[in-house]
Design a protein around this nucleic acid. Structure first.
Lengths: 224, 224
DNA sequence: GGGGATCTTGACGAATCCTTGACGCAGGGC
DNA sequence: GCCCTGCGTCAAGGATTCGTCAAGATCCCC
């Protein structure tokens, strides 16, 4: 899911943006000042940043310049000022777009789509490798002996959940609710069927799995 | 030198923009209506397009959509209207930024710099070759056995999206929203129709595609 | 206004995927 | 030793999704 970092010291606006963005399918992380914004951007790199220039602790353009020191994430600036000097400064500091308050949410969403459309081409892949197969989360692809393995949507989702937290035990309920939805928390036989398919496709010896381990009674675990 | 295509029917504004832009080191090409703008963009591909929405001969969003049929050049829209519907429509048609008249020249220049900065990062190898055909993204051409293959704008756009990220699975929603716009995210039958056409034109055996692969239930994938 | 290219729309078998039930096996408690 | 529970396996059916075709609508250039 697309993660958006919203930085604003106005709690009301922050809340409105969170609700609107989430309703349109974005993951929302919020920050109320420049320092926590930079920290959040580093810890959970978002796909886009919405930044209010009027922050309590530091100048908005300074935030952009710091961010640009190590990230190329698109930045959409909000500001109450109409002055052109502010716009010029923010844009030249590295912002990608600039909206003046008050603004329409539809316009914000449209500008956000335009920015994401542009940056969609420049994202880097996450690759997990084992001695038997390779999972490319960015390309949604699995390789085994150089051949690409064809997975059904359900097989892929299940593998993705496991692979995203290596060595960690994923309970049956977590798997079921992430792949099939919270309503399917008792259909553990689905897990057995699809785990068998994954093993047949990925494990060298499906009978003695070394990467897709079952923890009897609780869930499954992925070992690289 | 960086070439900018300025499209506006206001002779005075056109003149002012030409002088300002040239003073800042840009090459300026002008057009006064949609038709000549599209023609000029084709004959002398600019690095950026500044487009006034209020053109005498056609709707501004229609110009953008046509342009997007074969070009990814950044588009900066000028408009006298403040309504958010116009902005949303233009941005979703493929525009990258939107300024409302009257605007400050400094702001225009700053936004222009921001757009050019972005597009400079996105430059990538523009010729992709497979053992069956060759795609030249820069020249918007497809060759097969030395022959020029004729693609419709929609076919081209779809092929371009797939080819720009080789081996990557492109979701049906991604394809639909990039080719037809975010509002068409459910018209998956369009994909089937156009994918069939692309395969007929590009694949040696359209019945057993080797480069344009379908991932049932999720999307499509291009393999070189 | 006319003709050609392009885009939409609907319908149909074919291919793929998901669900479901049955069966065997292993381990643990009694 | 016996029963019970949880897991792996298999295959069939039913439900989706896909490829294909063709006809109508629309756009565009002359």
């Amino acid at each position: 899911m697309t993660a958006v970092l919203v930085v604003d010291d106005d709690a009301y606006l922050l809340r409105a943006l969170r609700i609107t963005l989430q309703a349109h399918g974005y993951d929302v992380v919020t920050a109320v000042d420049g320092r926590s914004a930079l920290l959040a951007a580093r810890q959970q790199p978002p796909a886009l940043v919405i930044l209010d220039l009027g922050l309590p602790d530091m100048d908005g353009s300074a935030v952009i310049r710091k961010l640009r020191g190590w990230s190329a994430v698109p930045v959409l600036v909000l500001s109450a000022r109409h002055g052109s000097e502010d716009k010029v400064e923010a844009l030249d500091a590295g912002a990608d777009d600039y909206i003046t308050k008050p603004f329409g949410l539809e316009e914000l969403l449209a500008r956000l789509r335009a920015l994401l459309r542009r940056s969609a081409e420049t994202e880097q892949p996450t690759v997990i490798t084992t001695d038997a197969f390779t999972v490319d989360l960015g390309k949604r692809r699995v390789l085994r002996d150089g051949q690409d393995i064809r997975l059904t949507p359900t097989e892929w989702k299940m593998l993705e959940v496991l692979v995203r937290s290596p060595e960690k035990l994923v309970t049956q309920q977590q798997l079921l609710s992430e792949v099939w939805g919270p309503a399917y928390a008792k259909e553990t036989n689905y897990l057995r069927v699809y785990m068998a398919q994954l093993r047949r496709k990925l494990e060298p010896e499906a009978a003695t799995p070394r990467h897709l381990i079952t923890e009897a009674g609780t869930g499954y675990r992925f070992l690289p």
